[in-house]
Design a protein around this nucleic acid. Structure first.
Lengths: 151, 151
DNA sequence: ACCTGAACACCGTTCAAGT
DNA sequence: ACCTGAACACCGTTCAAGT
């Protein structure tokens, strides 16, 4: 809060005229970053569309590395943009015959893997480059989607 | 650090005679908790063994809910116990024909999902009970293992 | 409606000193 | 080897007051 206030050239407590507390500000920020993502079109090929959003999310998180631990701490974003992405994913899953509780389960599995590999990618382990982890994520997404769609 | 010191009835800075800094203490604690897990036997049925360790990990994290955000922040444990579990998993994967870089990839996919669902389970969302999320994890592990083993 | 100064109750960590 | 008191440089947040 103090760092944000300094950035704005304002006293730290001035922020509390605009935001309830730090968590509220952080949640708003996280969802805002997610706004850069295009939800997959409803008529896209479902497997490619789902794969595509998750890889785009991985790439987006890679360019906001400092935010990844914050996403983990808040267990992902839950704002309007996050919901819109989730709903677009559910539409594609329905076209694969996955609906209702099962769709929620697949969305969670996809998100958890994407966030998890993004987190590993921001750790600076020289034996595990971001490109390697992106390839890991691609394989993982394929396993999940193929399993969920019973292809 | 101050809370731990108080628990021990000691001045906060006394801890620095035993531990380099907070991260070192936290890493040691996380790996210590992991010591409660039995690595799967090398001659166990591979799919059942791998599934079993991950579900046992999920259950263990459920009984240490306050530590789950800490695991996320530190991207899992990397101590001796974590390594032993990883190696036992690699042995089972080798018996499925998954070796080398591919084995590391599968281990990461399994761990990321397990930690991720454990994190969701500790969030208090009334629409998503720990039992539901455990079932989600079971399905996810099956998809990953079946995909990785090409069954 | 939006900002300020001052304060409260915290942090992790260092340093010099004691036994 | 292990502890202490004192201090440093921080936090998020509240409260009363100003415009």
């Amino acid at each position: 809060m103090r760092a944000v206030a300094k950035e704005l050239g304002v006293a730290p407590n001035a922020l509390y005229s605009h935001v309830a507390d730090k968590d509220a500000l952080v949640d708003a920020l996280l969802d805002d970053v997610l706004g850069a993502l295009d939800p997959p079109a409803p008529d896209a090929e479902p497997l490619a569309g789902l794969r595509g959003v998750m890889l785009a999310t991985f790439d987006l998180l890679g360019s906001h590395a400092d935010l990844v631990p914050v996403y983990l701490a808040r267990q992902g974003a839950r704002g309007a943009n996050a919901r819109a992405l989730g709903e677009a994913m559910s539409v594609l899953l329905a076209r694969l015959g996955v609906e209702g509780r099962a769709a929620g389960r697949v969305v969670r599995a996809l998100i958890v893997s994407t966030l998890g590999f993004a987190a590993l990618a921001t750790a600076d382990d020289p034996t595990l480059t971001p490109a390697d982890l992106r390839a890991d994520l691609e394989a993982t997404l394929d396993w999940l989607l193929r399993g969920a769609a019973r292809v």
